[in-house]
Amino acid sequence: MTASAHIAPVASSALTVSAITQRFDVSAPWLNRVIERKSRLFVRAVDDVSFEVPKGGCLSLVGESGCGKSTVARMVTGLYAPSEGSISFAPGEGGKPLSVQMIFQDPYASLNPRWRVFDIIAEPLRELKLRSTEAEVAARVVELLQTVGLAASDGRKFPHEFSGGQRQRISIARALAAEPEFLVCDEPTSALDVSVQAQILNLMRRLQDEMGLTYLFISHDMSVVRHMSDQIAVMYLGRIVEQAPTEVLFANPRHPYTQLLLDTIPDVAAPRRDREPSTGEVPSPLKPPSGCTFHPRCPQADQRCSAERPGMTALPDDSRAACHRVAEMLERMV
């Protein structure tokens, strides 16, 4: 995959997410709470996250599993309501907010095993009444199947007759059937072989160019993200720690966590055998560390990091990072 210059069109934002927070109630059942005298327990899966996605662009959220990126995706699509903060879409055609659809991570769970592919793709058309007659629905399903590179006769089959990559194509066709202007892609390739990943990613890029879609792309794979996005936001334990244009982030990662993530990309041409393996695990979001939540694993942490939570520092090259070291460096420069 090449790092193609996928320059974001200078345009207004399609999606504005401001300070959203998601708390999940993970308390024990009522009876256990009463008997064992436990208090209620909440997890902040997403904590004070803000970002904007420009129209026609692609913003990627990256981070380890459990960092809250899928929760953000589900809040953006409206499957979960945010506990705090707001999510607003720019008006699309006809003045209504941009319509959102989602491509899911697991191609084996995202298609109903009892439904034929034809009915799966026709469901949005029928539910949203996008076509009035069954003949039109059928014609549109064929068109969609061909758009994603499947044959018209595949509509007759059941999902289990397809491979993971083909299922993901079906999933994309279903999402497109609803005629969305904004697609949320929740790790659409993480369950696929590398060779198939490239096919699906290229298909998604092609669709973006042809239909002018805007993407919110979720992944943990830095090379996939580099291929897809204009902007990258790095999440750690429910917060965004760094956000930057793709090439800036890869060329000049500011946050120690981003540096750690980039370090983990294997490089075939110049393998770095001397690379220091990173230590530590992601702390439990039930009891996040004090101050900067990354400080227990951070090589540059000092006392300030464990005491004080860093704010976002905006940098001149359009990037921003939540790290005391970055802020201190900026102060020295000024």
């Binding site: 589900r74 499957l79 989602m102 899911f104 991570q105 697991d106 769970a109 995202s110 539910e127």
Partner: peptide
Amino acid sequence: GKEYVQAAQLLKV
């Protein structure tokens, strides 16, 4: 909890 149900919920079925 499966994703095909979420896909249907997204369509406001």
